[in-house]
Design a protein around this nucleic acid. Structure first.
Lengths: 203, 203
DNA sequence: ACCTGAACACCGTTCAAGT
DNA sequence: ACCTGAACACCGTTCAAGT
């Protein structure tokens, strides 16, 4: 058996999350899935919170890289938003993993740096660039948390049990709205708010 | 000792969260704080997840009510966004409590109903009203999650240990941006993205 | 340098039995 | 109708001891 290292622990954690979800992740079950005594994990990782923080930053690795698309300014900001969403979606429960961590880590910072830079390049005044960039970030996080929540709900029908469908009489707007969304690709739903948020950028 | 009921359990849970945060909440400690054997809680509440779901809906109670402000259309949508943020901020870790629950509950639905209604009244085409309303919701959730994360970080300096301040040389935009934000009221930061998101609504 | 084994102080949930 | 007490199957974390 190859000896474990930190990277293997992270990879094992992602594999576990893919299969069972973040809520099921425990140090002991992770250790078992890696074929190791659970005490061993604490050699590679300070504690469970540190593991989660590492996963969060891992999620964002490469998101802020240059893409060669040549996108500039507000187009680059839009591109970054799409790349952030893709990164969060690349692992089950990705958005919740990131939302659960308060930490300023390299890849999180690199994303902020790139997003603010894009806003500046779009002509946003220096005093507003952070606001524009962070607003986009908030939107993406909120969107994907909801998106992945829907995936989890679909995966586990039992969670919806006893609740039934939405009462069209009490909530006609929601009822009709959800019907609309069901006919629409997620990408288009995502683009809707993003476009409007970025439209004002650089004017 | 007055007998417990479901409302008292919820109130006790909020009091506990106010003092120790959501991560510290356990059924056993909550029971102790209520002066009751921990098995007792399961008489009032199905399990911990059901308790959390109930807290989440409790958080949103009254948010979608009429305010008598007479705000209509996009103004009403803006008002709802502010009221949602206030509700999330009204309890420690409020945004995370809500984000952790997948459930469609009465007050969540009532908020969506009101927000879509406001978008429609603002002249948004029926096919887009959900998108406009939900986009605002995503933004608010993302914003307040970050906002409350900052409060938690300030409360527990130890979590930031060994990290130090942001490296101005590596992340000049972030460094300058955070300085800008520090001089700005949270309300103004919140309004920035919200205004831009709602500006396109009803055009 | 990496891992095991065992211990410690916790968890959520269930359920007979009490009042 | 509400609560206790005890049990069951788990947790995260630490740390001497092994290789």
């Amino acid at each position: 058996m190859a000896r474990l290292d930190r990277a293997a622990v992270l990879a094992g954690a992602w594999a576990f999350i893919e299969e069972h979800g973040i809520d099921a992740l425990t140090m002991r079950k992770l250790a078992t899935s890696l074929g190791v005594n659970h005490g061993t994990l604490y050699w590679h990782v300070d504690n469970k919170q540190a593991l989660t923080d590492a996963l969060a930053d891992d999620l964002l690795s490469g998101v802020a890289d240059e893409t060669g698309s040549g996108a500039q300014g507000s187009d680059r900001l839009t591109e970054l938003a799409h790349r952030l969403r893709s990164a969060l979606l690349s692992h089950r429960d990705g958005a919740r993993v990131l939302a659960g961590t308060f930490v300023r880590q390299p890849n999180t910072l690199a994303f902020g740096e790139a997003a603010i830079g894009a806003a500046l390049a779009a002509g946003v005044p220096a005093a507003e660039a952070v606001l524009a960039a962070f607003s986009v970030q908030y939107y993406v996080m909120g969107f994907v948390i909801e998106e992945q929540a829907a995936y989890e709900l679909a995966r586990d029908e039992s969670r919806n049990n006893g609740r039934g469908p939405i009462d069209a009489a009490s909530y006609p707007n929601v009822y009709a709205g959800l019907a609309t969304l069901r006919k629409m690709p997620r990408d288009s739903q995502f683009a809707y708010g993003l476009t409007r948020l970025v439209a004002e950028t650089g004017r």
